[in-house]
Simulated assay, not measured.
Amino acid sequence: MTDSLKPSAARVQNYLARHGQEFVVCELPGSTRSAEDAALAIGCMVGQIAKSLIFMDKNTGEPVLVIASGAHRVDTSKIHQQTGVKLTRADADYVRQHTGFAIGGIPPVAHTNPIRTMLDQTLQQYEQIWAAAGTPNAVFKLTPVQLGELTSGKWLDLAG
């Protein structure tokens, strides 16, 4: 099954399979780089897209993964108020170094090293959500509960 996937998408599929998950990574013909593109390609609401964004903790330099609903912008001041963590955007080289993936296809799992994760609580309103799977056109479907279990993320009010 992973033979037909691009290497980064296959890496995500293999990670999910190794962790007892039966999710299916699929590569779509169009780009899913933006939440709007992904929702259009999948045929779902923009809010059901779980977009993975890498930030850097200003105090420690460590990466922080924020998984937000495609319908929202991330409000880093809200995150700071709730967690004490001050975030700054990470550049493309930093993202690849810490996740092993390029911006535009960052999955919630299968990173080079474990990453502290924060989850947009508004994703919990959906029965099913879609996450990137390693390339700008690869995705997989899951539930918010499964997202929380896979990432050990902390659910927060982070929408701006």
Rank of each mutant, 00 (worst) to 15 (best):
Y126Q: 05
V145T: 10
G20E: 15
R89N: 10
D93S: 14
S4V: 03
R96E: 14
P63T: 08
H111P: 10
I79C: 08
R116H: 09
T2Y: 06
I42R: 00
G30C: 14
K154S: 12
P114Y: 01
L28M: 06
S8T: 13
D91E: 09
H111W: 15
R18W: 07
Y126P: 02
A9L: 13
D37T: 06
V46F: 02
V66E: 03
G104N: 10
Q82F: 06
D75W: 05
M56R: 15
A133F: 03
C26E: 14
Q21R: 15
A138Y: 07
A90M: 11
V25I: 12
V12A: 02
I67W: 02
K78T: 09
L156H: 03
V25T: 09
D157G: 00
T2H: 04
M45G: 01
I106P: 03
E62D: 07
V139D: 05
I49Q: 13
G160L: 06
A131E: 06
G105Y: 01
Y126V: 07
I106K: 05
T135Q: 01
D37S: 12
G47S: 02
T76P: 00
L142W: 11
T76L: 02
I42C: 00
D75C: 03
E127R: 00
E27C: 01
R33C: 07
G70C: 00
N59C: 13
Y126S: 02
R89C: 02
Q146W: 00
R89W: 08
R73W: 11
D91Q: 04
A17S: 13
G100C: 07
D91F: 04
G153N: 00
I115K: 03
G105E: 05
Q13W: 14
I54Q: 06
P7V: 01
Y94T: 08
V85C: 14
F23I: 10
A131S: 09
P144C: 04
T99Y: 09
P114M: 05
H98N: 14
Q82A: 11
I79D: 12
K51R: 06
S77N: 14
V25H: 07
K86R: 12
D93M: 12
T99W: 12
A138R: 04
T112P: 01
G30A: 15
F55V: 11
V12C: 05
T117S: 10
V66Y: 01
L150G: 06
I49Y: 12
V95A: 10
S4P: 00
G47M: 01
P144D: 04
A159S: 14
V46M: 00
V109Y: 05
L156C: 07
V66M: 07
A159H: 11
W130L: 08
L119R: 12
R89I: 07
A102W: 04
E36L: 03
L16Q: 10
P114W: 06
A38G: 02
D75H: 02
K154A: 11
R116I: 03
Q81G: 05
H111V: 12
A92F: 02
I103W: 05
V66F: 06
T143I: 02
H80V: 13
T143C: 00
G61M: 08
T76G: 01
Y126F: 14
Q121N: 13
N14L: 12
